[in-house]
C-alpha cells in the first residue's frame, strides 16, 4: 500500500470506512508541429489559441482518463488529491515541441459493495474534505477544470502591444492590452468550469485552484497559460450511519490561508 495520506488522513480513512489502495497516475505526452509565425498570436491578445489549446486539453484529458483507468483496475471507487502538472519543452531535433501532462492521485475504495463498479470519482480535495462534504449532505460529482493558452500581447523582446514609446514614463501606466488578455483568460477558465458544472447538474465547484503563467513561445510572442481545477458538488441527502461532524472553526493547529492554498504553478 502506498499513498500520500498523512497520519490524519490515514486515521480518518480508517474511521470513515475508506480504504486507501495506493498512488495512481496517468501520463500523456504530445508533440505538436512547429509553426514559425502564427498570425493568430498577435491579432487578438487574450483570444484562445485554439489549435494549441485543443491539443493540450486533449492531452490533459488523456492523462486523467489513464489515471481513472488505473484506479478502476485496482478496484478504486474514488481518487482523492488529484494533481496535474504540465511541462512544455522543445525536442533536441528540429520541428517539434512536446507537452507532457502527469496526473497523480490517491486511489480509495469506499466499501466492499461498490468496489470496482463504474468509473471512479476524481477530486482534487484531500480525503478529509471529501469525507466532510459527504457527511454534510453533499455529493461529490467529479473534477472540473480548464486549460487554455492565449497570446498576451507581448512580443519576444518584451514589447507590449499598444505601448507608445513616446509615452510620458514618469508616473507609470496600465498595460491594458496585457491586462485584458490575462482577464479574458481567467474569464474563459471560469466559463469552461461553469459549462462543465451545468452538464454535470452540479450546484457548484469548491476547492478551485486557478492561476496563470506567462512564458515565451517559439512562435514570436509571449503566451499566457491559464489553468483551473476544482471539484463539482451537489446537495444530496445526508449520509446515514454517522453524525454530521463538527466544523472546526478554531483549530489548535491554525492553518493560515497562505499555507492552505495558493496560486501554484501546478494545478
Amino acid at each position: 500500500m502506498d499513498a500520500r495520506f498523512g497520519v490524519g488522513g490515514f486515521l480518518l480513512a480508517r474511521e470513515a470506512g475508506l480504504r486507501q489502495i495506493g498512488l495512481v497516475s496517468g501520463v500523456s505526452a504530445v508533440q505538436r508541429r512547429y509553426r514559425p509565425h502564427d498570425p493568430e498570436l498577435f491579432q487578438d491578445p487574450g483570444k484562445v489559441w485554439r489549435s494549441e489549446a485543443s491539443l493540450l486539453d486533449e492531452a490533459r484529458r488523456t492523462a486523467l482518463e489513464r489515471l481513472a483507468r488505473q484506479a478502476h483496475a485496482r478496484g478504486a471507487s474514488l481518487v482523492t488529491d488529484v494533481r496535474i502538472s504540465d511541462e512544455v519543452y522543445e525536442l533536441g531535433e528540429p520541428g517539434g515541441v512536446v507537452a507532457q501532462f502527469v496526473a497523480t492521485g490517491t486511489a480509495v475504495r469506499r466499501d466492499a459493495a461498490d468496489a470496482g463498479n463504474g468509473d471512479p470519482v476524481l477530486t482534487n480535495l484531500p480525503v478529509q474534505d471529501y469525507w466532510l462534504l459527504i457527511r454534510h449532505g453533499r455529493e461529490v460529482l467529479g473534477l472540473v477544470g480548464s486549460f487554455s493558452k492565449a497570446a498576451s500581447g507581448v512580443d519576444l523582446r518584451g514589447r507590449v502591444l499598444g505601448d507608445d514609446p513616446y509615452k510620458d514614463d514618469d508616473g507609470g501606466w496600465e498595460a491594458d492590452v496585457y491586462t485584458g488578455a490575462v482577464s479574458r483568460g481567467y474569464a474563459k477558465a471560469r466559463a469552461d468550469m461553469r459549462a462543465q458544472l451545468t452538464t454535470l447538474g452540479a450546484d457548484g465547484a469548491v476547492g478551485v485552484r486557478i492561476g496563470h503563467v506567462q512564458h515565451k513561445a517559439a512562435e514570436g510572442a509571449h503566451m499566457i497559460t491559464v489553468r483551473a481545477i476544482g471539484t463539482a458538488i451537489r446537495r444530496a441527502m445526508p449520509m446515514t450511519g454517522g453524525d454530521r461532524p463538527a466544523l472546526a472553526i478554531m483549530p489548535v493547529l491554525g492553518l493560515g490561508r497562505g499555507q492552505e492554498k495558493g496560486f501554484g504553478r501546478h494545478e
Binding site: 451545468t198 457548484g204 465547484a205 476547492g207
Partner: peptide, 14 residues
C-alpha cells in the same frame, strides 16, 4: 447558475 469557489470544503460549509 452553478457557482465556482476557491474555498476549501470546510470553508465552504462554514
Amino acid at each position: 447558475e452553478p457557482f465556482t469557489s476557491d474555498l476549501s470544503a470546510s470553508e465552504y460549509l462554514l
